[in-house]
């Protein structure tokens, strides 16, 4: 499924088809005849045959139709809202977060808290950043409001742990610097819209 389809939230105009499922049996006699018909017709063996065929395909042709979770995982939609990730700038490896505090402000369950400071280069720097995952409702507002696409929802949906606090520090969420090349651009909430190019205006520079 492409991203455009995900972003289409206008469900009203999608076309649905109704299947013809016939009429269900009403009297006891009708029900009895249906059971007898289905048993005698041998449909059961058709089903068993399909299963056998798939099993043989899986065993000898390596054509598996199930996923070996947890060794294998299905790709999930970019709109899925799992544990947050803090991204880095691809060129320099610096944090994308500029410490503007919008995520902290917009958070409806008040679970983000951050501290910032005036750093040696006279810039604003994030010194502390935590998300209380006991409170987080994964609404995605933080990712949507972030002007730098610094905080996003990642794909890490397995969040069973003894202490949810284990996910919540800035460093835990931050892309490890040695895995910068693996960092994926975020496609979910707050990502650049498909028609972003059309909306961009030229900066008025006279030089």
């Amino acid at each position: 499924m492409s991203l455009e389809q995900f972003k289409n939230r206008n469900v009203g105009v999608q076309s649905y088809k109704t299947l013809d499922v016939g009429t269900p049996p009403k009297t006891g006699m009708e029900k009895f005849t249906q059971v007898v018909k289905r048993s005698v017709k041998g449909e059961l063996f058709v089903g068993l045959g399909v299963v056998m065929k798939r099993m043989l395909e899986a065993l000898f042709k390596n054509d598996m139709h199930t996923v070996k979770y947890p060794f294998e995982k299905m790709p999930i939609s970019p709109r899925y809202r799992a544990i947050h990730e803090m991204l880095r700038l691809l060129e320099s490896g610096n944090y994308r977060c500029i410490g503007c505090g919008l995520c902290e402000k917009i958070c409806i369950s008040n679970c983000i808290s951050m501290e910032t400071r005036y750093d040696e280069n006279q810039r604003k720097e994030v010194s502390e950043y935590t998300i209380n995952f006991g409170r987080c409702i994964f609404c995605g507002y933080c990712a949507e409001v972030c002007p730098e696409l610094a905080i996003v929802h990642g794909q890490r949906y397995e969040t069973a742990s003894e202490q949810r606090a284990g996910f919540s520090l800035f460093e835990d969420m931050l892309t490890p610097i040695d895995q910068l090349n693996l960092q994926q651009e975020f496609d979910g909430f707050g990502a650049v819209s498909p028609n972003a190019d059309d909306n961009i205006k030229q900066t008025p520079l006279a030089y």
Partner: peptide, 12 residues
């Protein structure tokens, strides 16, 4: 104020 600079947002 230098000691306040970049420590928090006014609305917090």
């Amino acid at each position: 104020d230098t000691n306040f600079k970049y420590t928090t947002n006014a609305w917090e």
